[in-house]
Structure formats: structure tokens, C-alpha cells
């Protein structure tokens, strides 16, 4: 960034326009190798990432796939009005918010706890083994994970077996068939999958804590738990706060795969979220306009949230989005 300033300064320092352009093109020719290495990918970016934005117009049309762009009927905000009066959409919105909040809170609490525990392990081999195993579920696909979770929660799965053996259940339960348990199952699943992975940043932050602090605390007679609570945890507070703020920006991103793969007719009232709504209306029912309206709503809200989150994080003087 600092280097960059030095190079942009001359052109900003009151050079006349033609000379500025001339200089710009001369540099462009000079740096043609860099241009060749990057501009094709900007074109790629434009086609694959920016061009689809044009498709948002569909949300304001009564879109018929067979017709061309100019023959579509424009209906203004009609689809948005429908969405916000639609009971199903509001339920989907509720599910999205609940599950992403669950994701946020559970994700933070469990990852910070595990990082604190791992940080206290003295046997390095044991620590390494725990870490490696805890990363495993992150790398496998949600398809595999969902299959595993279904097997574990099946009527003859280990969870039923354990609960019956402990006498906590009288009869086998089809856990994924009970709607209001879905959020709990979802929470447990994402914790299982990403717990270890989420500790990486916290563990890195912990290595930055000044050892002198621990020594001073030891002089004062602090035990292991006290040191963890009064030194390690406050030591990673800045990282926690920044990550927390940045994650609030993803409040409408509750994920798609776990809900889609673990969802079924019996828990649909609790598992269906915005992304599934968009998929079902768009691909399954062919109601493109409504689907695009819903996903456009999601993107616009996310955009605002992310920008605000990034701005706040920046003002706190910590790491930021880029």
C-alpha cells in the first residue's frame, strides 16, 4: 500500500490530463507482461462474476424463459411485495437468522474453548494428534458428513443406542424426523465439522502473548485455570472481537449444504433457509422471478452488513477485510 502511493502520486500531483494519459499508456506498454498476466482474468471475472448481476432485472419482471429481454413484462416491486407477505418466506427468513446466529455463537464459544484447552496441553505429541484429528471433519464433504450424521442419528444409530443404554430414552427416536430438533442437530453438526478448523486463528493469536505475563502471574500464585482465564483469554480478545464483527456480516449466510442434505419433509419447517428457498422456487418450480427477488434481497442485505462490519472492524484499528 505504501509503495503504491509513491507511484500514483505524480499523476495526482496536478499533471495535465493528456500527459497523464500518455504516461499511463506508456507504462501500460512497458508493463505489458503484467497486463497479459492479469487482464485476461479480469475479463474472466467480468463474465463469470459481474455479468450475472444483469440477471437481477429478472426480479422486476414477470420472467418467461422463452421470451427475449425486451419482450418481458415489467412488474416493479411486485415480487418483493409478495415475498414479504408470504408466510413461507418469512419462516425461511426466521430459519436463516436462527441458524446463522446459532452458527455464530456456537462456533465462537466452542472454538475458543478448544483453543484454550489445547493451549494448555504440554505433551506436544498429544496436542499435535488432537489437532490433526480435529481438522479431519473440515476436509470431508458435506455429502459424506451428512451421510455420517444420518447414520449416527438413525433409529439404530449410536446416539439412540447410547441414550437407551443410559436409560434416558424409552424408545428409539428418528431424530431427523422431529422438526423442532433440527436446529439442535444443525448446531451439533457444524460444531462437529468445523470446531478444530476454527481454532487455528485463536491458537496463532495465543503464541503472540508475552510469556512474561504468565511468569508474573505465577509469581502472584496463579494456577493454570486462573492464568488461562486472566491472561490467555484477554490476550486473544482483539482477534475475537474482529472475527465476531466480521462474522456478523454473514448473518444471512447460514449455509446451504447441511440444511439441504439433512433436511427432509418432516423437518422442512425448521430446516428450509433462504438458499434452499431460492433453489426450490428457481430450479424446481421454475419461478425465476421470485427466486431472483429472494436472492437479490439476500445479497443486498449481506452487502450492507459486510460493509458495515468491515467499517467497524477498521475503526477498531484491527485487521480488516482486505
Amino acid at each position: 500500500m505504501e509503495n503504491n502511493l509513491a507511484y500514483t502520486e505524480p499523476s495526482a500531483a496536478g499533471m495535465s490530463k493528456p500527459a497523464g494519459w500518455k504516461r499511463f499508456f506508456r507504462q501500460l506498454v512497458q508493463q505489458r507482461a503484467l497486463v497479459v498476466m492479469s487482464v485476461p482474468f479480469v475479463v474472466w471475472l467480468f463474465v463469470f462474476k459481474y455479468l450475472p448481476l444483469w440477471g437481477w432485472t429478472i426480479a422486476f419482471q414477470d420472467y418467461k424463459p422463452a421470451k427475449g429481454f425486451w419482450d418481458q413484462k415489467w412488474v416493479g416491486f411486485q415480487h418483493f411485495e409478495f415475498l414479504f407477505g408470504d408466510e413461507r418466506f418469512l419462516r425461511v427468513l426466521r430459519n436463516t437468522l436462527v441458524m446463522s446466529s446459532l452458527n455464530l455463537v456456537l462456533g465462537f464459544v466452542t472454538a475458543i474453548t478448544l483453543a484454550l484447552l489445547l493451549n494448555e496441553v504440554r505433551q506436544l505429541v498429544f496436542k499435535r494428534v488432537v489437532q490433526t484429528i480435529s481438522y479431519l471433519p473440515h476436509f470431508i464433504s458435506w455429502v459424506v458428513a451428512a451421510g455420517i450424521i444420518q447414520a449416527v442419528l438413525a433409529t439404530d444409530g449410536i446416539v439412540n443406542d447410547l441414550l437407551m443404554w443410559l436409560g434416558l430414552l424409552d424408545d428409539e427416536v428418528l431424530f431427523l424426523g422431529v422438526g423442532h430438533w433440527f436446529w439442535g442437530i444443525f448446531g451439533a453438526s457444524i460444531v462437529w465439522k468445523d470446531l478444530g478448523w476454527n481454532t487455528i486463528v485463536y491458537l496463532a493469536a495465543m503464541t503472540m502473548i508475552d510469556p512474561a505475563q504468565y511468569e508474573a502471574a505465577e509469581m502472584d500464585g496463579a494456577g493454570r485455570f486462573k492464568k488461562m482465564w486472566h491472561i490467555t483469554l484477554p490476550g486473544i480478545k482483539p482477534v475475537i472481537i474482529v472475527l465476531l464483527i466480521m462474522n456478523v456480516g454473514y448473518l444471512l449466510e447460514s449455509g446451504f449444504e447441511p440444511q439441504y442434505l439433512l433436511g427432509n419433509g418432516m423437518n422442512i419447517d425448521y430446516s428450509e433457509n433462504l438458499d434452499i428457498f431460492v433453489l426450490k422456487y428457481g430450479i424446481n418450480m421454475g419461478n425465476f422471478s421470485l427466486s431472483v427477488a429472494a436472492s437479490m434481497f439476500k445479497t443486498v442485505v449481506s452487502f450492507i452488513l459486510l460493509f458495515a462490519a468491515n467499517h467497524i472492524a477498521k475503526r477498531l484499528g484491527e485487521a480488516r477485510l482486505y
Binding site: 450475472p52 448481476l53 429478472i58 430450479i283 431472483v292
Partner: peptide, 15 residues
């Protein structure tokens, strides 16, 4: 910028 905005499922599919 593409981290913040994307066209979404249907527009991408049509593309």
C-alpha cells in the same frame, strides 16, 4: 468486490 456481490443462483445458471 466479488466478495460482497454476486448474481446469485438463477442468473449464474442462465449465464
Amino acid at each position: 468486490l466479488t466478495m460482497y456481490v454476486n448474481g446469485g443462483l438463477i442468473p449464474t445458471f442462465l449465464l
